[in-house]
Amino acid sequence: MKLSLVTAAAAASIAASAAPAVAGDAAKGAPVSVPAPPAGKGQIVFYRPGGTGMAMGCTVREGETKISSVGNGKYVVAEPGKHDYAVRSEAKDSLTLLVEPDETQFVRCKIKMGIMAGRPDIFPSSADDFAKVSPKLKMVHDDDMGQGALRSTDLAKKS
């Protein structure tokens, strides 16, 4: 299935990190382990380490449907099956992906400098990059998630 946005990487390689915490239940300072997607399905991890534009959210949408707002230092797991994700503020950015069954892909969001407001930039990332920054990431609060995002309870069931 083709998706707009993000990258992929193996949840398995994340799990290989020392004492990883399960997504949604991460202990402070521990790398996050994202559970493998259900058999036959893929999944995408959107995350946003710290940087400029801290006050801005990186709101991922598919068409007009909000997947989730990804705040500074946050991440969210989305089940794909949809095709067009985008982020926008004063500028729009999009990324097309091919998420294949049983794979986890990673997408990183960066808020670039803009004229009036920051400009979100989303690009493919990797399990390694996610593992590197994940100890400082927190899961997006359920209230900030939209359709298609997995809540902490969903991830707990999978792990």
Partner: peptide, 16 residues
């Protein structure tokens, strides 16, 4: 490179 996208997708369930 920052990333390798589809490449690093290790997979667990190999039902097919």
């Amino acid at each position: 490179a920052l990333v390798s996208a589809r490449a690093q997708q290790a997979s667990a369930g190999i039902a097919d």
